[in-house]
């Protein structure tokens, strides 16, 4: 009986793992099946032509811009906020309210952020429809994600590390920088990777703040179109699923590359010369 239960559980675990992997492979396989023939040097590095055909290079550049700018702003602010909440703030009502607020913020549909960005960054701050307005909006979207994951990561650092370090006559800041943050790094990293996914997956909020100009941006103050917005628009205009799939492949490659470099950078940081 016990044996049978055990086998059943094992089968269920194996089954779930199989289903998840199978779904992933099906999607990726489908993308490649539909889109791979579109991929060429001209497609990736060519300029877009509105008459049909042409490349997606401007959108690749715009996508990378938005990811990098949002992360460069959101990561330090998010980590500092989490460190403050977890290590410095007196644990009381105020901190609980802030925590509850950040948690709620992660659940708000992104179109709301998009509308806010359109009103505040685009109009009030007069940034216009631009990469920078979109990046700032995305910063607000991913900030709660980074704060949450960093706080969770800080919670997993054993209290004994803190005590051990402080008992050696170090300051709180040294302890934070040399022991706590490096130990929390894997968790912080997963927050950053989640954020990259969130930024790349975003369309509505970007559509409302960066616009849809399908040309190479002159600067981060230009209106531009990200890959995700582009794939939505071309599918809608031309109904060409293959093209959208090809864009999907490019997106997957970009995400993989960014995740790998984030992992690499955090490893470097972890080995910082003590």
């Amino acid at each position: 009986m016990r044996q049978a239960k055990d086998n059943l559980l094992r089968a269920m675990l194996w089954g779930s793992a199989f289903v998840s992997v199978a779904i992933l492979f099906t999607i990726v396989g489908y993308l490649f099946y539909k889109g791979f023939s579109y991929i060429s040097f001209d497609f990736i590095f060519g300029d877009y032509s509105p008459i049909g055909g042409g490349g997606i290079f401007p959108m690749i550049v715009t996508t990378i811009y938005t990811i990098l700018i949002s992360l460069i702003i959101a990561t330090p602010i998010g980590i500092l906020a989490a460190v403050y909440l977890h290590e410095y703030a007196k644990q009381g009502r105020l901190v609980r309210i802030i925590r509850y607020a950040t948690e709620s913020l992660t659940g708000i549909p992104s179109i709301i952020y998009g509308l806010f960005g359109a009103v505040f960054f685009v109009a009030t701050l007069k940034l216009g429809m631009s990469i920078i307005a979109a990046s700032l909006t995305l910063t607000i979207i991913v900030l709660p994600v980074i704060i949450r994951t960093t706080e969770e990561a800080l919670k997993t650092v054993p209290a004994s590390y803190r005590e051990g370090s402080l008992a050696l006559g170090t300051t709180k800041l040294q302890t934070l920088y040399k022991v706590i943050l490096p130990s929390a790094m894997p968790g912080i990293l997963s927050g950053i990777i989640l954020s990259i996914g969130r930024i790349v997956g975003e369309s509505a909020a970007i559509f409302l703040t960066a616009g849809t100009v399908a040309a190479m941006p002159d600067s981060i103050f230009s209106s531009a179109r990200t890959l995700t917005v582009h794939s939505y628009l071309v599918t809608q205009e031309s109904g060409d699923i293959g093209l959208a799939a090809a864009i999907g492949i490019v997106l997957i490659v970009i995400i993989l590359a960014l995740n790998l470099s984030a992992t690499y950078i955090s490893k470097k940081f972890n080995k910082a010369d003590y």
Binding site: P158, S160, Y161, E163, G164, S165, L166, A167, L168, G169, T170, T171, Q174, K178, V179, P182, S183, Y274
Partner: peptide
């Protein structure tokens, strides 16, 4: 005070670093 009065805890609380870095940690700081 804590450089003058050291402390060893009930359970080892070495940091996830090399042996060398653990011992050199305090002096480096």
């Amino acid at each position: 005070l804590r450089t003058k009065v050291g402390m060893v805890f009930q359970k080892s609380n070495l940091f996830p670093m090399s042996i060398y870095d653990n011992v050199a940690y305090g002096p480096r700081m």
